[in-house]
Amino acid sequence: MPNQQAPIGSVQTTMRIIEALRDLECTGVSELAEHLGLPTSTVFDHLRTLENEGFVTSDDDGYQVGARFLEIGGYARKQDPLYAVAEPEIQKVAHQTGEHANLVIEEFGKAVFYAKAEGEDAFQLDTHVGKHVHLSTTSAGKAILAEYPDEKIHAILDEHGLPEVTEHTVTDRDQLFEEIEECRERGYAIDDEERIPGVRCVGAAITGDDGRVLGAVSVSGPKSGMQDERFHQEIPDLVLRTANVIEVNMKYR
């Protein structure tokens, strides 16, 4: 969990502006100020500073997040051995299944899409590298939670809650813990239209020799193509095998 002591107000304001630019995609100063409930002059000063430093760009339509964030995020990911080891395996899974394959990590109580690949039958999803979602809404997120002690899970839920994303999202804590127990018994978790309507997903955690949770691998596809044995055995077996391969390769890298 992040340290909440001694926050610096100006930095918090800058981060709120950056996150709002991400959510609004491209916007003017006045619209952004109204969205955040901040003075227009304050927002303008922050935007100009961010633009001067190369983190924000602007045109006739307004301001948007710049590519320099991609440079920094790409550098951070490249330094992580997990990405180097897992990314080729994610590509293989996508090719084998024809679906979306994902590498997910947990940061500050949220699931982060760390790498993804699309098979030849994959359809368009809202996911992109760096996207943050609630752990409880994804198979990979639930697989990660299943590796944590109950006390840590409760702490994450106390902070982030169990928001309803679709009509199938698990919003009851007891039900979520029942699913976590099932995941602990069989080794994988499922997402049955819980984040995106019409999409099913199977995920398994990746752990290190010391038991530390490194992340999770998952496969997502349309409900029509994720039925019966494919959803309950074929994809789970592949996801579990992939997670194990990554774990072994991490050990001997």
Rank of each mutant, 00 (worst) to 15 (best):
K142N: 00
G198D: 02
A67V: 02
V248S: 07
Y75H: 10
P88S: 11
R16K: 13
Y75E: 12
Q124G: 07
I196F: 11
R77M: 06
S10N: 08
A205Y: 05
S58Y: 10
H95Y: 15
A146H: 01
D150G: 06
E89D: 12
Y148T: 06
E181R: 08
E53A: 11
G66E: 09
Q233F: 15
C26F: 12
E87N: 13
I17K: 04
A122H: 01
G130Q: 09
Q4M: 13
H128Y: 15
L103D: 08
E19W: 13
L36Q: 10
G161C: 06
F177T: 05
Q227E: 15
K92I: 04
H232R: 05
L135P: 03
I72A: 14
Q227T: 09
G62D: 13
D174N: 14
V112H: 07
N52G: 13
A33Y: 05
I180Q: 04
V170C: 08
G130T: 06
E181W: 05
T138G: 00
M1V: 10
E193T: 03
P88V: 09
V85H: 07
S41G: 01
Q79F: 14
L36S: 09
K92P: 00
F55Y: 15
A111V: 01
Q227C: 08
R22I: 00
A76L: 12
T13M: 15
T14Q: 05
A117H: 04
A146D: 07
V43T: 04
K110N: 04
K223C: 13
N52R: 13
L70E: 15
A86T: 01
D60K: 10
A155R: 01
K78L: 12
R16E: 14
V217N: 05
S224A: 11
S10A: 11
E51C: 02
M1D: 13
A204Y: 00
Q124H: 11
P149E: 13
V65F: 08
Q96L: 08
A111M: 00
G221N: 01
P88N: 10
